[in-house]
Design a protein around this nucleic acid. Structure first.
Length: 718
RNA sequence: GGACGGUUAGCUCAGUUGGUUAGAGCGUUCGCUUGACAUGCGAAAGGUCACAGGUUCAAAUCCUGUACCGUCCACCA
């Protein structure tokens, strides 16, 4: 360098540089190489240790596209599958998609709507044909997206939860339950979605806070009133005594069959057993006592509408009250009188409030924030109403699941989800398994038009996907799975139901370990939501940073299910790391070209201090990576390798190697690099395989493909 | 209402059973064509570990309480 100020300073851009690693050039090619190798299919794997290792995928909905949750979940699964494949297990990760009843029906209906058609215009048969067409066209998009992520799924075994064999599984399962007397039909208050025209289970609801009003309504007490069943005029009202109730849904008073108060409530003790006249309809209904009623809330007295409220229904059951259905399946008033019948719920509410006001029976109105149940698919307000549905008795099934979880047959990772699962199973209610939608498995009962809850078929996935009820080889070899990775929001909806189903039909839990992974939140700590536009598309990230960097970035942040505040910086780190590795490989292969026998372990006799230190550290890294992966400490494992590669190998040893040209040093360089590629392969499969293939060409390694190369053993270097 | 998780550098997060000067990546500042890498190399600044008590020779770590953020369960009329 010169100090002459006139001498132009070297500009960085003038310096010839190596081309950075470009994932786009290699990822597709490498994925094809793997597919051609056949090693995604366990039947083609080398003999190995003779053990099998199965992971269950959560079959994505055919309506879906990959989101960050999928990306994390499947990265974790693929990391485990690749790790075990290299360790000599016959690994099976079976792909599939879920028919997703309501979601798919809605998606196709939406498309029809664009042409001004409804599903009723087409009729059931035509409509179902349309859905199948739609499924052919779009149903595999999400699986292709998993390929982009590098997931090593056995595509030859791909299943769909509505394919023929699967329908047989569903039928067999139902008939089994029926034979055991666990199926019954009942007229029960169910969660009814007026838009989708179907019943929903408790788990299919979401609650949203809505601003509403709390109306205080005065009901005249019969004994102390001039009221009678013919109604009253203004003078009678003045002379009456009342009991006041608070409600957010005044229109449901048309279906009231009682007033309830807490038995300990001194204010109302004398009134229990008396009757009131229900205004507007002038029915006489009793005042009953029930401990469910909170003394503090509202007036402490509650109107009881057993047909349209689950809690009220319980009170009615205990007190033998009649159940009067006044709202029908399309959300209109029925069974009241000419004045109200046929009105929509909102119209009825306005009319009831108006008339009560005229009569002077509204004591007051308060602003009130109310938690309203919504359909988890279409977000319409749920209307509880009595309906004939099919139920599965849960108690005997839940008991089996509870036992298996309690005795450790199934473990949870992190462990805290165990208690949460047990809690749900211990308090579970019977499962309403019938739905009134068209797209789904038919309930195999004569003249029954109903379909099954999608989760009924999903619950059978761990064995139905392997061919059950046929006694297939796959079922024998690959049931049950070692691991399932899942988001926590389907812990009960899916995981718990798979557990009791597996125990019931296979006499064995469907998996050993449940990994509940982090929820990927946005930077503000809020849930990513497609509808709110706050989601990040993982495919865009793959495009920008490469699949390896995306995977590594996600895994690098995965510590014990702790939620991830997603930050793109981490992916940049992953991308830089990939580039670093690329350059390390370039350096090593240039330096050692033609000099090294393939795959030889270095001879450490007479090795220098730096070499010994590196080899020692490498041994520790192998051990720590292996241990951490076995304990599902994904983040730690990624950190361990990252630190070794960058700071021990590149910063120290490669720099050291520049001062020495001995054969020993060269052998150690190759040995360390190949070991690193193996350790890193489950995390960053594309770049490691790409480099590996170059080493194969240069005759620096013996094993022809990294995906089934042997996982390094720390003892060989210690 | 019940349960659980979190709070550590400007940002996103590690910190295993309590034990020297609490770490990483990104960002910031300074220097750098160094045998692969400027997506790099070398250095530096930056922390009352949410708060208040307690246990201990010793606390980010264990205990109690408080505050705030978040999740799940229950659905309160």
């Amino acid at each position: 360098m010169t100090n002459d100020p006139d001498e132009p300073k070297n500009n960085i851009s003038d310096i010839p540089r190596g081309k950075p690693y470009d994932p786009k050039e290699v990822e597709e090619k490498i994925y094809r190489l793997w597919e051609q190798s056949g090693y995604f299919n366990p039947d083609n794997l080398p003999k190995g240790n003779g053990k099998t290792y199965t992971i269950l995928i959560a079959p994505p909905n055919i309506t879906g596209s990959l989101h960050m949750g999928h990306a994390l979940e499947n990265t974790i699964s693929d990391t485990l599958i690749r790790f075990h494949r290299m360790r000599g297990y016959k690994t099976l990760w079976l792909p599939g998609t879920d028919h997703a009843g309501i979601a798919t029906q809605n998606a196709v209906e939406k498309e029809l709507k664009k042409q001004g058609l409804s599903r009723h215009d087409l009729g059931k048969e035509e409509f179902l044909k349309k859905i199948w067409e739609w499924r052919e066209k779009y149903g595999n998009i999400i699986l292709d997206q998993l390929k982009k992520l590098g997931c090593s799924l056995d595509w030859s075994r791909t299943r769909f939860t509505m394919d023929k064999e699967y329908q047989e599984a569903v039928r067999t399962a139902f008939e089994h339950y029926q034979k055991k007397g666990l199926i019954y039909q009942g007229e029960r208050v169910v969660n009814w979605c007026i838009k989708d025209q179907t019943a929903l289970s408790d788990l299919e609801l979401e609650y949203a806070e809505e601003k509403s009003k709390l109306w205080y309504i005065k009901y005249p007490i019969a004994k102390n009133s001039k009221w009678n069943k013919f109604g009253v005029g203004a003078s009678e009202i003045r002379n009456s005594k009342f009991i006041t109730v608070a409600t957010t849904r005044p229109e449901t008073m048309l279906g009231d069959t009682a007033i309830a108060v807490n038995p300990k409530d001194e204010r109302y003790k004398a009134l229990v057993g008396q009757t009131v006249i229900l205004p507007l309809v002038n029915r006489e209904i009793p005042i009953v006592a029930d401990p469910l009623i909170e003394i503090e809330f509202g007036t402490g007295a509650v109107k009881v509408t057993p047909a349209h409220d689950l809690a009220d229904n319980e009170i009615a059951f205990k007190n033998n009250l009649p159940i009067l259905k006044i709202i029908n399946e399309v959300g209109k008033i029925i069974n009241v009188n000419e004045e109200f019948d046929g009105l929509k719920i909102s119209e009825a509410r306005a009319k009831v409030v108006g008339k009560l006001k005229e009569l002077g029976l509204i004591e007051k109105e308060e602003e009130f924030i109310h938690n309203v149940a919504k359909c988890y698919r279409c977000n319409s307000t749920i209307e509880p109403l009595p309906s004939k549905q099919w139920f599965l008795k849960m108690k005997p099934l839940a008991e089996k699941a509870i036992k298996a979880i309690e005795n450790g047959e199934i473990t949870y990772e992190p462990e805290r989800w165990k208690a949460i699962s047990l809690d749900w199973l211990r308090n579970v209610r019977d499962w309403c398994v019938s739905r009134q939608i068209w797209w789904g498995h038919q309930i195999p009962i004569e003249n029954c038009e109903d379909t099954f809850d999608t989760w009924f078929s999903s619950a059978l996935w761990p064995f139905a996907a392997l061919g059950w009820p046929q006694e297939t080889k796959d079922l024998k070899n690959f049931y049950s799975a070692t691991v399932i990775t899942s988001a926590r929001d389907i812990l009960h909806l899916w995981i718990s139901r798979m557990i009791f189903s597996g125990l019931e039909f296979m006499d064995q839990a469907p998996f050993k370990t449940v990994i509940i992974h982090a929820t990927v939140l946005n930077k503000e700590g809020k849930r990513m939501s497609k509808s709110l536009g706050t989601g990040i598309d993982p495919l865009e990230l793959i495009e920008k940073y490469g699949a390896d960097a995306t995977r590594f970035g996600l895994i690098y942040q995965t510590f014990g299910g702790q939620d991830i505040h997603f930050n793109e910086n981490v992916l940049m780190m992953g991308k830089k790391f990939a580039n670093k590795l690329w350059n390390i490989a370039r350096f090593v292969s240039t330096k050692t070209e033609g000099n090294i026998l393939a795959n030889n372990e270095p001879d450490l006799d007479g090795a220098d201090e730096e070499s010994l230190a590196l080899i020692k550290k490498l041994g520790e890294t192998i051990k720590d990576t292996t241990d951490n992966l076995q304990k599902y400490n994904f983040g730690e494992a990624a950190h361990v390798i990252y630190d070794f590669v960058w700071h021990d190998f590149a910063d120290k040893y490669i720099e050291h190697s520049k001062t020495k040209n001995t054969k020993d040093v060269k052998m150690i360089l190759v040995y360390a690099l190949t070991t690193i590629l193996k350790l890193l392969h489950p995390f960053m499969p594309f770049i490691t395989e790409t480099i590996w293939q170059e080493l194969v060409e240069k005759n620096l390694v013996k094993e022809k493909i990294l995906i089934v190369a042997e996982w390094p053993n720390q003892h060989s270097v210690l």
